[in-house]
Simulated scan of single mutants.
Amino acid sequence: MGALHYFFLLYILAYLVGYQIVWAHRYVLSAVPKGSLRVSLQAPSQRTPSGLLPYCDTYNGNATSLKRYPCTYYDQNFVLLPSNIGDNSMFITTRITESNQDLMPNCSIEEYNCSYVTLSNHTTYIPDIEDFTVLLDHFMFTVQPDYQALGRQLSGKIVGSDGKEIPLSPGEVVGVKDEYDILKVSTILKAAGVKSLDEPAYNDTDSKRYQGLVLVLLVNYTNMHTFSLSKLEYFFSAIVIDGAFFKFEQTIYSKSIEERVVWNRHGIRLVIIPTGNYGAFDFQTVLVTFVSGLGLVSVSTAVVEVIALWVIPQKKRFRKEKITETSLKPD
């Protein structure tokens, strides 16, 4: 029974040191980081001729099943739909359907039955969206424990859905000290498992380029990957929300309120969320971990005692050795 008791003690020690301390980091006070960032979009310096792009109507390559539309080389100022400051998101337009509308003839906007009539529709793609670059200037902080850090002071990387690091192409930057992170849209799509914007949208015959999609880019801050809590790093990961599309209708009035153009924008809704796990050494947390270990020692002692006194064939002998009967005789 002594061997069983020592086995339990060794198991508890391995559990405390191997799992609680080494694996689960139960010697630190941890928190999920919060943060914010500044994002901007930049068009590539060199654009691809529309004749080489299979989604443009002037494509001169082999026939494909893609729906083709005219391609218009808008820059980042047209492509990026401004988001609210602090929204941690951006909308990158991939397709615009332009509708020219006039008020009904002999009609006034002050009349209840007056409405706009669509005169014409024109759909266009914005080419080379995959080569547009996203600049991210981010920071993190925690309240308890108290800590804060700038992203450009940390090392980082971007990983795919399999957890493996994605190699960067020329012009991309991630985790370089004193430099902002710069990622191509194609790299973010790859991290989310999207092979091409021309693949079918979720349960739809139209492409992701036509319908749009919602991407969540996670900025994972952590210092829990090594025993050096002073080494804070981050990595980008991305997920695509299946079945979620995004569109925005932008109304442009020209000379008067009687005439207007409605831009029905579809594209990539990119939502950036800071997350992760930051921890700092905390004596109270260590104390709680070891006190719970002492509780396990008491439980193991009680289990061994029950086995020795009530289960094994030699239980009577163990009871005799454990329990000593005494009698008190008067002098």
Results as ranks from 00 to 15, higher is better:
S89Q: 13
Q76R: 08
H122W: 07
D242H: 10
Y278P: 05
M140E: 05
I92D: 06
V214I: 08
T205D: 07
E321L: 13
T93K: 14
Q20E: 14
G61I: 12
S292N: 13
A302W: 02
Y27E: 00
L328R: 06
G193N: 05
P127D: 06
G175N: 02
T251V: 15
Q211N: 11
P145Q: 02
E172W: 00
G156V: 01
T142V: 02
E325N: 04
S298G: 14
G193C: 10
G175F: 02
V194T: 03
A14E: 10
F246I: 07
G279I: 00
F245Y: 09
D178A: 12
E179R: 07
F248N: 15
V134F: 09
L309P: 10
E258A: 15
L66A: 01
S45V: 12
S50E: 08
L9Q: 07
Q101V: 11
G151P: 14
F7C: 13
G151I: 04
N121A: 07
G279L: 00
R265M: 02
L197M: 11
I166F: 01
V22H: 03
V32I: 02
L135A: 13
V214K: 15
Y253L: 15
Y221K: 05
Y19D: 09
L13K: 02
L218I: 08
N84D: 04
F227Y: 11
F283A: 08
D102I: 12
T226I: 10
V39N: 09
T124M: 08
G276A: 07
Y73L: 15
E179T: 06
K34S: 10
H25E: 11
I323V: 14
S30G: 05
H25F: 13
V262G: 06
D204W: 02
R38E: 04
I252H: 05
T205A: 04
Q314R: 07
T289E: 04
F227P: 13
M104S: 14
Y125A: 05
I268T: 08
G279N: 00
N77W: 04
G18T: 01
L270N: 07
L80Y: 03
C71W: 04
T142C: 03
V299Q: 12
S196C: 10
K329V: 12
L37T: 00
V17M: 15
G293M: 12
L29S: 03
S161P: 10
S108M: 07
V32N: 08
D242F: 07
S99R: 14
I188P: 15
M140R: 03
V173I: 10
I21A: 01
I307G: 02
P274R: 09
R38F: 06
